[in-house]
Simulated assay, not measured.
Amino acid sequence: MALLHVDFFSDVLGMCMQMDVILPQQTNGQIGMEGKGVPGKIPTLYLLHGMSDDHTIWQRRTSIERYVSDLGIAVVMPTTHLAWYTDMAWGNRYFAFISKELPEICRSFFANLSDRREDTFVAGLSMGGYGALKLGLSASETFGMAASLSGGLDVASICKNITEEEEKHYWQGIFGPLERVEGSTNDLFAEAKRLKESGKPLPKIYMWCGTEDFLYDHNVRMKEHLTKLSYDLTYEESPGDHQWKYWDEKIQSVLEWIVKNRNNGI
């Protein structure tokens, strides 16, 4: 595998950004790890961070490079700050950046990355779980599979329960008037319904959450909603709360799910 630390400029955001990128490499002599090359275009997983983290966190908290070494998958880990992967009400257009500009930039830097929807996946944890499903539901023409681990999936309910003025300022800066989040393009429940009714291609979706996680109810409600809408959903839960020892384990399940579904066609 090759690990690249990339500093680049985003025209959409008007500033320099960072991402870590793992690229497949055919190797035979690495101790304890076998690298797999790809004869054609390379499938790509965009792997998103949570609120307290950045583009380095998956490298620091998991063995993601080792997990993908024999899968022939590239992994793009961007930093997206605290914007919840949205076009902010008062701020930058992070959704436009990550849904459209970032894939274009990556494919221009690394010409072997596939541009096929069937080869483009997104996953994330917590805030990144929200981002992953948002990309899957709101940019389904680009992302064929989306996976959420311990996702903060019901931002409308989060916003309804905010009482501290300082907190309100933060959330309003992202989503605008908090009473208008429900039903908006930032409401994943509404986006899932709109996409289903649109006739556009639906992403395959994977979800996992620990039963002791403070976001567990979000995940149960989303599971029920997506099931009712007849999405192709793989849902798992198990004992656990909001911490890396579970995400390190479950990202391996996400990778297995991606490989299985890609081999079966999406």
Rank of each mutant, 00 (worst) to 15 (best):
Q252V: 03
Y85R: 03
F189P: 00
E191T: 09
V12A: 08
R116K: 15
R60S: 11
N264R: 10
V12Y: 10
A139V: 05
S126W: 01
T27Q: 02
P39I: 11
E179M: 03
K250E: 14
S148H: 08
Y246W: 15
Q25W: 14
H5V: 10
K260F: 14
S126F: 00
K228Y: 15
E34L: 14
L23T: 04
G91D: 12
R194S: 12
A192R: 08
G265Y: 07
E256R: 15
S10G: 02
L82C: 05
M145C: 06
A132N: 09
F9A: 07
M88Q: 12
D53W: 10
K228W: 12
G210S: 03
L102W: 03
D154I: 08
K200S: 14
L13E: 00
G29C: 13
W84L: 01
T44N: 12
L188M: 03
T142W: 08
P43V: 11
E165W: 10
L125K: 02
D53C: 04
L195R: 05
I174K: 01
A147F: 03
G240H: 03
G265V: 03
K41N: 09
S253C: 12
K168L: 06
G240Y: 08
H225Y: 04
S138N: 12
T56M: 14
M145A: 15
G50A: 08
Y170C: 05
K204D: 06
R262A: 08
F143N: 00
T27W: 10
Y85V: 01
A123K: 00
Q59T: 10
T62I: 01
Y46D: 00
Q30K: 10
A147Y: 02
A156F: 11
V75R: 04
K245S: 14
K160E: 14
T227D: 12
Y231E: 05
T27F: 13
T120L: 06
W244T: 04
P39S: 14
L255E: 01
Q25V: 15
K196S: 11
Y231D: 04
T56Q: 13
F121W: 10
S184V: 00
D187R: 05
G183S: 10
E166P: 03
E191I: 06
T142A: 03
I31K: 14
L135W: 02
S126D: 00
S138H: 12
T62W: 13
W171R: 04
G124S: 02
K200E: 15
S230F: 11
T120G: 03
S10P: 01
H218C: 00
S126K: 04
T80I: 06
R60K: 14
S108R: 11
G35L: 07
R262Q: 08
P24C: 02
P201A: 06
V75Y: 09
L48P: 04
G183H: 07
F95G: 00
I105K: 08
K160F: 08
G199N: 11
L133Q: 00
M15Q: 11
H225I: 00
T185R: 15
G91E: 07
K204A: 15
D241V: 07
D119L: 10
F189K: 09
S148F: 05
I22A: 09
G32E: 06
E104G: 11
Q26T: 06
E224P: 04
G173R: 11
M127T: 04
K36H: 14
Y206A: 04
G91P: 02
G124W: 02
V76Y: 01
W90R: 12
L102S: 07
E164F: 03
P239W: 07
P203V: 00
Q18L: 13
P203Q: 08
S114W: 13
